[in-house]
Design a protein around this nucleic acid. Structure first.
Length: 625
DNA sequence: CTGGGGTCCT
DNA sequence: AGGACCC
């Protein structure tokens, strides 16, 4: 719709192969739904205009523009697909709170299950500020990129995401902590809980669990038997509206892939041609990215009568270094070489002396390394000068980014947070191990100054809980998470919106919040929208209509509650209190992903896996083996 | 007649 | 290498 505004008022569907992957609101009014077959859609809406959406390039570019724009307001942005972003606006909220008199606070947008005019912003200062931040982000996305979308503001990513859809096209909603229970109960089934996919839902159903309350009340012990401790606790917490994962800045992509599906492919000639076609575009994208892929993977799907659904098989191999350099440089003869590599992998997958019937081929570059600086000398780790090229381009604005040559990219500097590895090092180095048992140490965060934590922790659990809950009422401040979801006007929203999507924010500091939004496409004036901000906990999630981004935080590995904390009690605590508690007993510090080990100049990137104290420090570069 | 992407965990 | 999840 953005590319062709004349389509704005017509029913529009985005088509991939035989299905309508998404549509605009006009088409939806005619009964066109999300993953509907083209034939069904045409039946419901004969005038439906179709646009082929198999090439994701423009959606990907828009998507990164949204993420970049959000990052320019608040660095902690996590993408979720192309059209959603979570933004942890905790710090922004805290700093605004300091300079804002309570009397000047207000909410903008909807408040879940409440009348906005009936809620006192002074009672939820952080969420109120979060609602304004969400509104600003949505407005920035609309005026600068022409996309509309929704936002949700809440104390964690789960809640921000769920509440973002409360008021649908182009509006925003804030979740007050006391409405969490209502929100969760409003979900029609367990499958509606983000994080509970088809497989998990099926296994839960086998246990007799269908609704959110079924899962909330199911004995954890029994759940652990089916799913293991980590998964069991996680999904049960999700059912209660508890999400301990952090908004993890996404950074540049970890992999780039291109694929095509078809009804039948059964000759080598077709296969090598398809591989060449896919590789040509993938190499081009990789070149624009500027990093060097160290690994290549080929994936196929065979026609399978049985087990129709998701049988994919893959083989991967290292990319010869001369080739990966040529890819980054944009050499022209790279294609042929890579096709050769891919065909070799293909023969590991398929015995071509027998008949075969493929329905999909995918080519993927992963293990992406920033090329960098001084030949990746380990010495660069000790240099006081920042590496020349921190992680590739600033934001890998996906394909769009102008690919930075070797020089530090001057413009778009807001790139990788942490930029250099120094900051990563500092942060991770400081983190202590998650502590599996939990509570002993200072697990209880923020006790009032006059309470000695050593004394507190030896109190009976119910006394602790009572103290904590009293406590909670005293301190009103809390982190908030906001999520926004923008639906696109062009009709693309979900899968890939044409336009983009959202923005979000969350709060950091002791408390954190996340915001998520989704944007729709469309620059048009369509519906009005709103944003809402969460109160204490602040978080937002934003989605754009077509492309979207989301910010999320990584769930920390050791994210269990201390064993003496009852999750049911915990879930009743104010969101900000929950966040504080959680952030203390897993000492979270947001960290970027580490590009790949090597040249290290890259900066901070994901590195999630560093769990313990040690993992991500320089020592790993010296490990003996 | 269910895309074309992505992520992380095991 | 596969499986789960997300959009």
């Amino acid at each position: 719709m953005i590319r062709n505004p004349s389509l704005r008022d017509l029913p529009l569907g985005i088509q991939q192969k035989y299905i309508i992957v998404t549509s605009n609101y006009v088409a939806r009014q005619h009964g066109v739904t999300k993953l509907m077959s083209v034939s069904d859609a045409k039946e419901k809406c004969p005038q439906l205009v179709l646009v082929n959406g198999e090439d994701l390039t423009c959606y990907r570019e828009m998507s990164y523009k949204v993420t970049d724009l959000l990052m320019s307001h608040c660095p902690l942005v996590e993408r979720l697909g192309f059209d959603e972003n979570f933004v942890d606006v905790t710090e922004l909220v805290e700093s605004r709170l300091k300079e804002t008199p309570l009397s000047a606070l207000s909410f903008v947008g909807h408040i879940y299950n409440q009348e906005t005019s009936a809620v006192s912003a002074k009672d939820y200062p952080r969420l109120a500020i979060g609602s304004h931040i969400a509104a600003e982000l949505r407005d920035a996305v609309h005026t600068k990129l022409g996309l509309t979308g929704c936002a949700g503001i809440a104390s964690n990513k789960l809640l921000a995401k769920l509440v973002s859809g409360a008021f649908k096209p182009n509006q925003q909603t804030t979740l007050l902590p006391e409405c969490t229970v209502t929100l969760m109960h409003s979900l029609s089934g367990l499958r509606r809980v983000p994080g509970v996919g088809p497989r998990t839902a099926q296994r839960l159903q086998a246990l007799g669990l269908h609704s959110v309350s079924d899962l909330q009340l199911f004995p954890l012990v029994d759940l652990v038997k089916e799913f293991g401790e980590a998964h069991a606790k996680r999904i049960q917490n999700l059912a209660r509206g508890i999400d301990v994962s952090m908004v993890t800045p996404t950074g540049p992509p970890q992999s780039l892939s291109d694929e095509d599906s078809f009804k039948k492919m059964s000759t080598m000639a077709e296969v090598s041609q398809k591989i060449e076609e896919l590789l040509a575009s993938l190499i081009d994208r990789m070149h624009k990215d500027g990093r060097q892929p160290m690994t290549f993977r080929l994936t196929i799907r065979r026609l399978s009568t049985a087990n129709k659904w998701f049988n994919r098989e893959s083989r991967q191999c290292p990319i010869p270094s001369f080739l990966s350099q040529k890819i980054a440089l944009g050499s022209s003869d790279v294609l042929t070489h890579l096709v050769t590599v891919a065909v070799k992998l293909f023969h590991k997958l398929v015995d071509t002396s027998e008949a075969f019937h493929l329905t999909l081929i995918n080519v993927c570059f992963c293990n992406l390394q920033s090329r960098s600086v001084s030949r990746g000398s380990i010495a660069s780790f000790f240099s006081h000068k920042p590496p020349q090229k921190p992680q590739s381009s600033s934001r890998h604005t996906g394909p769009p980014s102008p690919r930075q040559p070797i020089s530090p990219t001057p413009t778009q500097s807001h790139g990788r947070r942490g930029g250099s590895d120094y900051s990563v090092e500092e942060r991770t180095g400081a983190s202590r191990s998650p502590k599996t048992s939990g509570l002993e140490e200072g697990a209880f965060p923020r006790l009032p100054p006059d309470v000695d934590p050593d004394v507190f922790k030896v109190l009976p659990q119910h006394i602790q809980e009572e103290l904590l809950s009293n406590f909670q009422t005293e301190r009103s401040g809390i982190p908030s998470v906001l999520t926004t979801d923008l639906e696109d006007q062009t009709g693309f929203s979900h899968i890939f919106p044409e336009p983009l999507k959202r923005a979000s924010q969350s709060v950091r500091s002791e408390e954190r919040g996340a915001v998520c939004r989704e944007y729709d496409a469309g620059s048009s004036r369509e519906d009005g929208n709103e944003f809402s901000v969460p109160q204490d906990p602040v978080g937002m999630r934003v989605e754009h209509d077509n492309s979207s981004k989301s910010v999320t935080s990584n769930s920390v590995s050791g994210a269990d509650f201390p064993h003496n904390v009852d999750p049911c009690v915990f879930s009743q605590l104010p969101a900000d209190m929950q966040r504080e508690l959680l952030s203390e007993w897993r000492q979270q510090k947001p960290i970027f992903k580490m590009p790949s080990r090597p040249s290290g100049t890259g900066g901070a990137s994901r590195d999630k896996k560093t769990k313990g104290p040690q993992t991500n420090n320089l020592l790993k570069y010296f490990k003996p083996s």
